[in-house]
Amino acid sequence: MKTVNLSTYQLTNYLLYLADTNLVLSQRNAEWCGHGPILEQDIAITNISLDLLGQARNFYQYAAVLINQSTNQRAGSEATEDSLAYLRTEREFKNLLITELPRGDWAQTILRQFFCSVYLYLLYEQLQKSKDDQLAAIAGKSIKELTYHIKWSGEWVIRLGDGTDESRQRMLKAIENLWPYTGEFFIPAEFENEAVTGVDLSSLKQPWLQKINTVLEEAVVWSPAFGDGWGEAVFMQTGGKQGIHTEHMGFILAEMQYLQRTYPGAEW
């Protein structure tokens, strides 16, 4: 593994950021299990949820290896994918704020998935070229899944935006709710050092806006990024990458971590 030239500390935090983002979004989508609008879509959203969980596991496993290499852990207390997911506190989670927002209605879930999938796709496309072999391999493996997530969620955005009055109103509301959380995508945290990640984050913004606009335009819904200035002027929420979360974060962690914290070490 060619990690020698990279700052292990920054890389570990970066991996945790990617893992947390996928894990929390996966957990939110999993809330639809058994509650989807129709059986087939229930399966579709939970499939995506499991894809994201799989990606999160890959990042956690790699992060655990780096953590154990760089610190002297007592035998039995080494970091594992489970300890990283279940035993860290709210302030230690680095996920993007948009992923922890409540699932809302179907429009909000769909639009969030679309925003995030397009972003992660563009990000992984760059990470595939990372100097870190392991990171590049995880990104390469994930990108096929993301291609489908974009297709699936994008078609739903169009279907709802171009559907009935009701579905259109819900999609417009979802855009308004979620847009202030998209700025965080492109603001690098301290650990998103270009030397470590190989990604110039600001270069992803235009392609992201372009893809979002293409789909929103086809869905005949208004886009904040269409150029009337609203999208640029809106105050963007930040803090997730630094561990400063919304009020919703504690609740989702409580639900997700409850079992491991109440019955430490419980296994299937």
Partner: peptide, 20 residues
């Protein structure tokens, strides 16, 4: 068999339901 609003959705649903 499954339910879907259109052919594209039917193929995607089939992918999710029958080729997992």
């Amino acid at each position: 068999s499954l339910h879907a609003a259109d052919a594209a959705m039917a193929i995607e649903n089939a992918r999710d339901v029958y080729t997992r």
